[in-house]
Each structure stands twice: as C-alpha cells, then as structure tokens.
Design a binder for these strands. Structure first.
Lengths: 108, 108
DNA sequence: CTTTTATATCAATTTTTTTTGATATATAAA
DNA sequence: TTTATATATCAAAAAAAATTGATATAAAAG
C-alpha cells in the first residue's frame, strides 16, 4: 500500500486492493454464488453431490470451485477419494454484510 | 426465485442471484475499487477531478463509472457542465461488511 | 453564433474469463 | 493386478470484459 499524500488528500499512487479484487471476482458469477448458497445449507458437501445440486458437468464445477478456493472463500478437505468443500466462514464474514451472510453464510 | 424442494433441501432449479452478481462484478476490478475508495474520501467528486485522482484517461474512467452506476453502487448528479458522483451509501452498506465499509464507505 | 470545456458513447482491438471435452491421477474395489 | 470411481488439470474454442482513440453532445464562455 502506497503512502498517502496528506497535502492533496489523495494517494500518491494507486492503492492495492488486489486481495479484495480476487474475492469480489470470485463472487462475481451466478454459478459461484449458487455454489456458495448450496455450501451454506450444509456443513460440507463433496464434489460428487455438488455436481447434482448445482447441475454442472464435473470439470466445470471443478473450475469454479478452484476460483472460490483461491479466493479463500471456501475450504477443501480430502477424505478417501472424496473432496469435501465448505465455506470459509471467517473470510465470508469479513467482507459480506450480515444481511448477505443470511443468504451465503449461516447467521450463527 | 424458484420454489424450494423441501424433500432434498436443494433448489429444484437454480436460484437467481443476478442482482448480486452485477454488484460483485462491479466491485471485481482494482480500478473500480480505487474509484470507490476515492469517492469515500469526499461527499462527491466531479469526473474531471476523478480523472487526476485515479489517473485514468477520460473515456476509460467514464466506462468504469458507468459499470458502478449500473450496479447502483454510486449515484450521479449533473450540475451545469459537471457530473458529480458519490457513493450510494445504502447499497454499499447492504452488501459489504462494516469492516470493508471503513475502506469503501464512511463509518458514520 | 463560434469556441471551449466536460463528459458520454461507439467501434475496433486486446485481454481475460468461461466452457468444453479429453486426459491424468489417486484411491478403492473386485 | 485390473477396473471403476472421484476429482483435477489441460488445451482449444467461445464468450465476455476492458482498452483505446475517435466522435458526439451539451452547457458555458467569449
């Protein structure tokens, strides 16, 4: 993050919002919001179940899960052959309003 | 919004998160986060001043302002030849966490 | 009027993201 | 082992978004 120019009140150079950009990009897609919503219904869901829940071909779902994972909005746990995904509650809470958390994140 | 299938707990068909998608898309860009940040520093800013604040060619700035405007994250007011933009506080508060509002939206 | 200033829009191009189908990998089951 | 299942990754194609420079519009100034 660049130093702030107190004379003009503006930043001397652009500030870096990259980490927010990545998270908002991850949320900026209907399919991925769908996935977040489904993950909000249960503690965790394996990929095989998600494919039917969101009705997507496996490679496509995998692609979108990776984007959410890279943005740290969800987490992955491998159990045997299955990969279980769940919301990263902390991160979601950090950026979304409480109101939105009711949709994409459990209230408690 | 589709009816919910209570048997499986899943939605019969995809739910529609389009309005959220549009807002997150608008936030999913470093330049536009920059603009939001600058708009957070003052009650409102005219385009001519924004061009120097975010250091962008006029047509490019105009393009990004339109995306934020269409997402209803900012508002426009025309005064003479000048167009003044300001944050849409209500909408920003509706979707972003209080913590983020400190960056992109005034605390009060 | 004519000119200047502030801003939006448009069309062409470039860049980024998404989709698709194929293939790779790893675990489990037979 | 061999085979089946779950999932990730890759490369090519398609689609969407961003950039650029030119032009349009509208208000203000001269």
């Amino acid at each position: 993050m660049k130093s702030i120019d107190f004379h003009t009140g503006s930043t001397a150079e652009a500030m870096d919002f990259t980490s927010y950009e990545i998270k908002f990009k991850a949320l900026a897609d209907n399919i991925r919001l769908q996935i977040m919503y489904e993950l909000n219904q249960k503690p965790s869901i394996c990929v095989c179940d998600l494919t039917t829940l969101v009705n997507l071909p496996q490679s496509k779902l995998s692609y979108h899960l990776k984007i959410l994972l890279d943005a740290e909005l969800i987490e992955k746990e491998k159990i045997g052959t299955w990969n279980y995904y769940r919301l990263n509650k902390k991160e979601v809470k950090n950026i979304l309003s409480e109101e939105l958390c009711c949709i994409f994140y459990p209230s408690s």
